[in-house]
Design a protein around this nucleic acid. Structure first.
Ligand SMILES: [Mn+2]
Ligand SMILES: [Mn+2]
Ligand SMILES: [Mn+2]
Ligand SMILES: [Mn+2]
Lengths: 147, 147
DNA sequence: CACAAAATTTAACCTAGGCTACATCTTTTA
DNA sequence: TAAAAGATGTAGCCTAGGTTAAATTTTGTG
């Protein structure tokens, strides 16, 4: 016999893994713009030191990444000054923040405690397709109308 | 006024991001051992070329990563021969495969189509805590008893 | 059994994203 | 207002995970 298990076709599986790798490439950018937007909303400005403390990385790492995000057109900053989002950065931040909240609230609705939901949402958010996000929203609405 | 939004405490948020980074460090190892186990189950052996085709990376990348996994005690291989799992690798593969199926089936149960569920599960699986996985299992059981 | 094809290894290179140590600029405060 | 403290930038280093190209080994076939 050949084929004791049911494997996907090779190319199809390669596409799956490729999608995950692509999601990871945009992940850092998404987390940065979301955090920058949150800091500006809560404190009026986003400083590199705040980002470093909240991301749990060194300030040198933040400097490097911010340079890359400037190159990507998401962020603006002048030397020794705080960090701003471009229009593209603001748009991305809005989408990412919305998605983050949906994923987190969805986890709470299915019975995960708030802190764990926050933890898991931070990673899961980057791997949720439009379609899966819509399924999450349906569950959220159902729970609200039942609640 | 100060604090227009509700931010997590800095250290707590740093822990959240740190957990995601740690998950990403183990992610490649998890995907490899799962795939190696699947190939052995379906085809009797796992060749580097199969891994490369199914992961959508070059065979040189597979060689590099397999060397790292040998160093980590998850995989065994002799030059020019196929790839085997150590006992530790087999144990990890079993856990990872189980988790993968739960995530995928859960997505289907909440209304995501099978192909999208497979796509999203490949990324989400690495960010699902024990507690969230248990919530997924509860939903799966509920749907089975309702079905 | 020789030789062509296929698979694997090796080498040299790249980017992202981490780090530490040190230099420089800005802000606070004595 | 000058020195100390704090924030930011710069330099040099590291690992993971990618790539292509060339060398080598194994495998399959006439
Ligand atoms: Mn995130
Ligand atoms: Mn987030
Ligand atoms: Mn995976
Ligand atoms: Mn991920």
């Amino acid at each position: 016999m050949d084929g004791r298990g049911k494997l996907l076709k090779s190319k199809q599986q390669a596409d799956v893994f490729g999608r995950v790798r692509k999601a990871h490439q945009t992940e850092v950018a998404e987390d940065y713009v979301e955090l920058i937007a949150d800091l500006i909303a809560a404190q009026g400005e986003a400083r590199a030191a705040d980002l470093a403390a909240r991301l749990g990385v060194s300030h040198a790492t933040v400097t490097n990444t911010v340079q890359r995000l400037i190159g990507a057109g998401l962020v603006e900053s002048r030397p020794y000054r705080s960090i701003f989002l471009t229009d593209a950065g603001k748009r991305l931040a809005r989408v990412v923040r919305e998605r983050h909240l949906i994923v987190r609230d969805f986890l709470v609705v299915i019975g995960v405690d708030a802190e764990t939901a926050e933890n898991d949402a931070e990673g899961i958010e980057h791997h949720v397709s439009k379609e899966t996000l819509e399924a999450f929203v349906r569950m959220l609405r159902k729970s609200t109308s039942e609640g």
